[in-house]
Amino acid sequence: MITYRDAMREALREALDRDGRVFLMGEDVGAYGGCFGVSRGLLEEYGPHRIRDTPLSESAFVGAGIGAALGGMRPIVEIMTGNFSLLALDQILNNAATLRHMSGGQLGVPLVIRMATGAGRQLAAQHSHSLEAFYAHIPGLRVVSPATVADARGMLWTALQDPDPVVIFEAIALYNSEGELPPDSGAVDIDRAVLRRAGTDVTVVASGGTLPIAESAAERLAGEGISAEVIDLRSLRPLDETTVLESVARTHRLVIVDEGWRSVGIAAEIAARAAEHAYYELDAPIARVCTAEVPIPYARQLEEAALPQPEAVAAAVHKAVS
């Protein structure tokens, strides 16, 4: 058994050991060990040339990471929270995502950007939002969201092989979660969604921090005789619509769980694609269970009320199958 946090640290170790071009940079990643403890101990193991503490300027250190990638290195840039990444959005959107296109294929930016995302730790509005849809909207980026310890361990090395920028969203609520990690676990596929639980009555789609919510709801529903199939998207751009549509063709009902806001989000995109390509497979309206359209509250009970919960997912499934 290993925690999600420790799985990410093992992934960083593997990357640093296997490729001398790899280095980690970001706020407090060195002496402090990372805001969420992911890089704890790595400075002592690899030294300040490969574990680099940066000034508190997201635009500056993401820009430095882009320059290093253009120069032949394989930087891993850590942004403390998804909210803070907006301070580097110009670098990510206008530079990292566009340079291959604007150079006619002459330049690539093999950069990995890691950032914590989501709520559940009472960190309030400026540290808790799920902004995956912002980045999944941008051509030129690959956007992934590991939901299990195996994917937390295995996605980083796969991402580092990509010749273009990859953004990895790590759910804050998952860092303390535990799972079984086989000794021979390694790189994992980041192109395809994965079936986490087979079912016959309804397809429940989730990703990142919402996967445990979906699985918990599916377990409750099983006790009521409702068989829910759970799909983990893994990748948000490109989106593996094929796996989702194949599942909908089996179950004929679709519920989407998304920690982002309901309006113009990942759930809306999946619902649109299902309506476009699987309309005649659906026996009930598509349901979305999303975060309330408010800034994330600080108070524990309000934060929980704003976020998708298993009870809300189960209620949406009941409505779909009724």
Rank of each mutant, 00 (worst) to 15 (best):
G30Y: 07
V29I: 12
L221C: 11
I286V: 15
V22H: 00
G209N: 06
L236Y: 02
F134I: 14
Q161K: 12
G37T: 10
E303C: 09
A271S: 13
G105C: 11
A152P: 05
E304P: 02
D53P: 08
E304G: 10
P308T: 06
T242E: 15
P75S: 02
V109R: 00
T98R: 15
P165Y: 03
K319S: 12
T3M: 06
V248D: 11
G179F: 05
N94T: 12
A320K: 08
H49T: 14
A222Q: 15
A152K: 06
R237G: 00
S177D: 04
M115V: 08
D19F: 07
I92N: 00
T54R: 02
C290P: 02
L42N: 05
G72F: 11
G208M: 04
M115Y: 03
A292N: 03
Q161I: 05
L254R: 07
P295S: 07
A125K: 07
L42S: 06
A249I: 10
V143H: 06
L282K: 08
A222L: 14
G72D: 05
R250I: 08
N176L: 06
A152N: 01
D90G: 09
T98G: 00
I172R: 13
A69R: 04
S85M: 13
E45S: 12
D232R: 08
A88R: 00
V29W: 00
D151N: 11
E180A: 13
T3L: 06
R5E: 09
I286M: 09
A15C: 13
R121Y: 11
G225C: 02
A159T: 04
P308M: 09
G104A: 06
E224K: 10
V167S: 00
R18K: 14
L156T: 01
M73C: 10
A64R: 04
R234Q: 04
R253H: 10
E224P: 02
L174I: 01
K319Q: 15
R288T: 10
P310F: 07
N83D: 14
R197W: 07
